[in-house]
């Protein structure tokens, strides 16, 4: 009896930061993967890093799309703004006109703050707009940011791309994997704590019915701007990681609308409004797709077609996504277990 309550207490405690015992086990397995045979190769480690990077983006994206119901179409551009800020601040080479030479570890925070500022701006701009208008506004802001990054050639080198300093001197991918894993956890746990508080309720209320939420005393301005700012802050932070991990930046590969769509597709396939769905699905997804891409090199772009088809299929036929499927399966399973126990008991009892 005592043991059971301890178990309950642990599982409740995990619930606060958004984990089930199963989720925690999977996370520990994930953290140990770089030491296990097929995963300790450098190129597979890169896939893992890509997976964690996309997973963290999904969480930050879903925080806006799944809660206040505004699809931030400029997400990738905001992430790119953070990446560029951090990369330019860390620059020491003479190929661009400024060399502040700041440590990347400080730079990514400044990049994140700058991205948060842009998010704040987008939040203000989209205040009067709803649904599709807000999405299109964010999209336009994204196009403008991409254009600006392309044109400020004296600090970004425009389409030629720049080569930011990396975090570490090492060429091993393992430390980077733990950095991005920690960043992913920080993003997830922070946003989970926010949506568990009364902020989360307010977000959901605004997302479901704007006018009713306002009528019941929720200040939509405050919550929407706050939501945008926080989501953009984390996007910029993750952008900083991208800049200082890959060591190469071009506006087109980072800030383009199609990058937002990749994140959006993953977040929707994972189940919108769940935060964890996109994160959980990102790893197997990236693995499947990278395996496909490395085996079928003569079919470029196949993985993006799969993204698109899956997204359409999910939206038309199964809008709850993976998180919805998980909830359904869990329900079904516990129902079956209860029935099995109910049938078993009369036989066992003497």
């Amino acid at each position: 009896m005592d043991q059971k309550s301890l178990w309950n207490r642990i599982s409740d405690g995990l619930g606060i930061i958004g984990f089930t015992p199963l989720g925690l086990v999977l996370l520990i397995v994930l953290a140990l993967l770089p030491f296990v045979s097929p995963f300790n190769q450098e190129h597979i480690l890169r896939w893992l890093i890509m997976g964690a990077f996309l997973a963290a983006q999904c969480v930050a994206f879903d925080f806006t799309a799944g809660y206040i119901n505004v699809v931030n179409f400029g997400f990738a551009a905001i992430l790119g703004a953070g990446a560029y800020t951090s990369a330019v601040l860390a620059n020491t080479s003479p190929v661009i006109s400024v060399q502040p030479g700041l440590s990347p570890w400080i730079g990514i925070w400044i990049g994140a703050l700058f991205a948060g500022l842009i998010g704040f701006g987008v939040g203000i701009l989209t205040l009067r707009l709803r649904g599709i208008f807000a999405a299109v506004m964010a999209w336009f802001v994204g196009i403008a940011l991409l254009g600006v990054a392309n044109n400020l050639t004296n600090i970004t080198r425009g389409p030629m791309g720049m080569a930011p300093r990396t975090f570490l001197e090492t060429t091993s991918n393992r430390p980077y994997f733990y950095i991005i894993l920690a960043m992913m956890l920080i993003v997830y746990i922070t946003l989970r704590l926010v949506v568990r508080s009364r902020f989360g309720l307010a977000f959901k209320a605004i997302g479901q019915n704007f006018d009713a939420a306002r009528a019941s005393g929720i200040n939509p301005t405050l919550y929407r701007v706050f939501n945008f700012t926080l989501s953009a802050f984390f996007a910029g932070w993750l952008g900083g990681f991208y800049a200082h991990y890959f060591g190469s930046l071009t506006p087109q590969t980072l800030m383009h609308t199609s990058k937002t769509v990749e994140v959006l597709a993953l977040a929707y396939i994972g189940g919108r409004g769940s935060l964890w769905g996109g994160m959980a699905i990102a790893f197997p997804f990236v693995f499947g797709i990278e395996a496909l891409r490395s085996n079928l090199t003569d079919l470029p772009g196949l993985h993006l077609v799969i993204y698109g088809v899956l997204m359409i299929a999910i939206m038309v036929y199964y809008p709850a996504g993976f998180a919805g499927f998980y909830a359904w399966a869990k329900d079904k399973l516990s129902g079956l277990l209860a029935r099995a126990r109910g049938q078993a008991q009369p036989i066992e009892a003497p």
């Binding site: 769509v261 929707y268 993204y307 698109g308």
Partner: peptide, 22 residues
């Protein structure tokens, strides 16, 4: 409807662009 179809056409655009590339 409006938001869902918007996202659907986004997916469609992906399929058409990269399908053509393929």
């Amino acid at each position: 409807w409006v938001m869902n179809t918007f996202l659907l056409t986004v997916g469609l655009s992906f399929v058409l662009v990269y399908g053509t590339t393929l």
